[in-house]
Design a protein around this nucleic acid. Structure first.
Lengths: 211, 211
DNA sequence: GACTGTGAAGCCATTCACAGCT
DNA sequence: AGCTGTGAATGGCTTCACAGTC
């Protein structure tokens, strides 16, 4: 067995940000970029940028920097974005509607196939061009379309029920916007996006600015 | 001067989650709760719960646990939620619309006063009951209403411009949903909620599950 | 001369384990 | 006996500083 190198989760978040920035830089036709310039662009430090990238390989050239196009490709590979990800959205309410047409997802290669909701007045309609199906059609849909990721945008009370169906259907990952802690088996990866928690961390930091 | 105790940011996030959970527990009429039960409810460890709370004081009783109602009050105080926070939202698009009626904000004491947008077809209308004003009215509004926090839900290209106005108007904090890194003076607290980054960390974790 | 890649050091956060209180 | 509060130990992440390469 090889040596297990353990990569900080924070490194992954930052690399995703580097990627978004580098796409912009590449669009501007810039060929090479240094760790210092990347750091400048994303609000970090040069050493951190180098360390983050070096976890995955030696992509740069000493004395020169990184080739933007190549680095972009490497990072997409690292993040698993060289393949397309098929995603479903659960919840056709306000948040679901916003997420269904969020540009940032499409731009980064995420493909939302359908939306699911338990409101029969919505089922059969379209949400920003996406079909809305009933939740009881979800398990079949996931298996037939080999959906990898479910985005949960339902009220907290329903979130675990939805998660249970996703789990049964052998989903690989869940992005959870419901303000509740989901119980899932360890082979299913969950990531929580907790809007109120973010706001509360902000208020804490405001109140304790000086300290 | 007193000894500076430095509190991990992760502790603040977790305390916010504890708070949400404890509100639910209190609603169920439960009087006392142990660190183990809190940990169970939020998916953490008892030691972590105790350590997190102990940063702020000794709220529990040995042999018994924590009084739910009192602990709730203490936590709200810690997070700065004993006062009401007046907030504005910038961006009346899909995401702005979703955020404008997000229950989780109101339930936790955040009060959205108004929405701002530069689309003159929207200005003058209401968004989920909130007035929509033009961006050039924003600076005055912030000062007149002593707004503390701005939530940015505009496209990435406009986000820095919006942030600059907020900064000029002496906002205290910014919750940024735009997928871009904002440049702000250090007295303004920014928190980024990066939706695509979250999804990309998820794909990374899925692809590297086994490792 | 410029900039990367990286071991070592330093710093921060989590976990352990137990003394102390009820 | 049960559960908190906390110093000490461990583990993980970031920063430093410099050798290596172009």
């Amino acid at each position: 067995m090889g040596v297990e190198i353990k990569i900080p989760e924070a490194t992954i978040s930052r690399i995703s940000v580097y990627s978004r920035y580098l796409v912009e830089v590449e669009r501007q036709g810039i060929v090479n970029i240094s760790s210092g310039e990347i750091a400048e662009g994303v609000g970090g430090t040069p050493a951190q940028v180098r360390k983050d990238l070096a976890y995955f390989g030696a992509f740069g050239t000493r004395g020169v920097g990184y080739n933007v196009r190549l680095l972009n490709q490497e990072i997409k590979e690292i993040l698993g974005l060289s393949r397309q990800w098929d995603v479903i959205l659960i919840g056709a309410g306000n948040l679901g509607s916003a997420l269904s047409q969020y540009r940032g997802f499409r731009e980064r290669g995420f493909n939302i196939l359908a939306v699911f909701d338990n409101d029969m007045n919505k089922v059969g309609l379209k949400l920003n061009g996406l079909p809305i199906y009933a939740i009881n059609q979800m398990a079949d849909f996931i298996r037939e379309n080999k959906v990898s990721i479910g985005i949960i945008a339902v009220p907290a009370d329903y979130a675990q029920d939805v998660a249970d169906i996703l789990i049964d259907s052998e989903i690989e990952g869940i992005l959870n916007f419901a303000p509740t802690v989901l119980t899932v088996p360890e082979e299913v990866i969950v990531r929580d996006v907790d809007l109120a928690v973010n706001l509360e961390v902000l208020t804490y930091n405001i109140e304790n600015k000086d300290v």
